[in-house]
Simulated assay, not measured.
Amino acid sequence: MLSLEEGGCRLYIPEEDRVYDTTKSCDFSGYRFLANSGKWFLAVDSRSRLVIIDVFSEERIDLPPLGSIKGDFHKVEAAGDKKFDVMFIEHIGFCSGVIKTVEDLRGLLWVDDKSGEYVVVWQFEGHEFVGYCKKGDDHYREIPTKIGVPRDLQGINDMVLKGYSLYWFTKREFVRHLDLSGEDGYKDVSENHRLPMWMPTLGSKEECERLGAVKTIAGTINIAVTTSGEALYVHSKAYETSTLERPRTFHVYKRDPKDLHPSTNDTRLLELDSLGDEALFLDLGITVKVEAHHTIGIEPNYIYFTRGDRNRRRRVSCLDICVYNLATKTNKRFPSLSNLKVKDAQWFLPS
């Protein structure tokens, strides 16, 4: 896990219960880290520029300016320190602007260490488009999230990038799936679900009693994608107790395969009791085969978590570094981290 602090980063390895400093000479003050893929991190610097950084070697890949985005509906212009005018382009050429700050920027990253190929995806929180670029691009391309998009696939609640596949959880609780590998733009390859998902009601009262909690204090729904490309829905909740302990629970669901059959209207999600031989990194939105990562202490059927709102902003952003055992329904936290002044943290898999 990488912990982000004032002026720099530290690496924490749970199996060793030790903290390591990363590069000594690189000052990361003024940077905000948005996402990671292996050893590579997507960050926005103090001048509102997106960069990809290897925090261990200080290798840096500068990305196109945000204002380079090209599309049919929006354009972006710098408007002073950490501010942008985001304008809707109407067919008659009239533009109406809305100012967004860089703190509203969200991002995703995927890097192939073998080929050096990469994909960067970003969005201004609450705005109606997504920008993306690939290695070799000198500008970003626009993906509308509302204009010209079928109603069921409009809006974004959560996003996951897995290779050239971009998944997002829509406002109407469908999953939109885009293929970004094409030279001429993206292709929508979403499954044709007839009805939105219906998540079973969680027994909050029963869970409060089991955990000895007073009430629920936070809850989020995220999507994740398995190694086989299947979408999972992850509902996490934090609880308040009479002590300093803040227990958290996770429920993992997948769509019932019958949902696509024309003879049924059943869209109830099926809850999973096990992830099999995989572990879920909710920060990355993906599952991984434990066998490929057993040397660094990754365990099957565990959920690795720091916060549930990395891809959508909340007024109160709750950092909660924990590992959840899906079989025993128990949390593990790391007392050694309490001595660090951690501003943010992200689980990652070193490549």
Rank of each mutant, 00 (worst) to 15 (best):
F124R: 02
R315F: 14
K100H: 14
L270G: 03
I53D: 00
T328I: 03
K75D: 11
T145L: 11
R106F: 04
I61G: 03
G276H: 06
L2R: 06
S228W: 07
A213G: 07
L161G: 01
L232S: 05
V160F: 00
E173P: 01
V316T: 10
D27S: 08
L260I: 09
R10S: 15
A327P: 00
Y164N: 10
K100S: 09
Y132F: 12
F169W: 13
I99N: 11
H74I: 07
R18I: 08
H177C: 06
R172L: 12
L211V: 02
P144V: 00
G131D: 02
C322E: 08
E230N: 11
I217G: 00
E291P: 00
V76K: 00
T241S: 10
T295R: 12
H293N: 07
N157K: 14
K171E: 14
L50A: 09
I92V: 11
L280C: 01
E6H: 10
L232I: 06
L337F: 04
H139F: 15
R333D: 10
R47I: 09
D273G: 13
D256M: 05
V111C: 07
L284A: 05
E271H: 05
C318V: 15
D138R: 08
K82L: 08
A292E: 15
Y304G: 01
T220V: 13
D27E: 08
K39R: 15
L349A: 08
D72V: 01
A345K: 06
F41S: 02
L319G: 07
K146G: 06
K332W: 03
K114C: 13
F33E: 06
H74G: 04
A79S: 13
L166I: 07
M87N: 10
R314E: 14
H193S: 07
R176G: 02
I221D: 11
E230D: 10
D62C: 11
L34Y: 04
R315I: 13
G203I: 04
A218H: 06
G182I: 01
G80Y: 03
V119W: 11
R10D: 08
L282D: 04
T241H: 05
I143V: 15
K343Y: 09
H91R: 15
R151T: 13
S46W: 09
E125L: 06
R313V: 07
I221Y: 05
W122D: 03
F129R: 02
D72K: 15
V86E: 03
Y12L: 04
C318I: 12
D21K: 09
D27F: 07
G30M: 02
H139P: 06
A78S: 13
A213V: 06
L166N: 03
V86A: 03
T226C: 02
D277C: 10
L42N: 04
V323D: 06
M197I: 15
M159S: 13
K332Q: 15
K341I: 09
R32M: 09
G163W: 10
G38V: 05
E209V: 11
E230I: 12
K171Q: 09
I143M: 02
F250L: 01
L166E: 02
L63T: 03
C322Q: 12
P200I: 01
G131K: 00
P65Q: 06
D85A: 13
M159K: 11
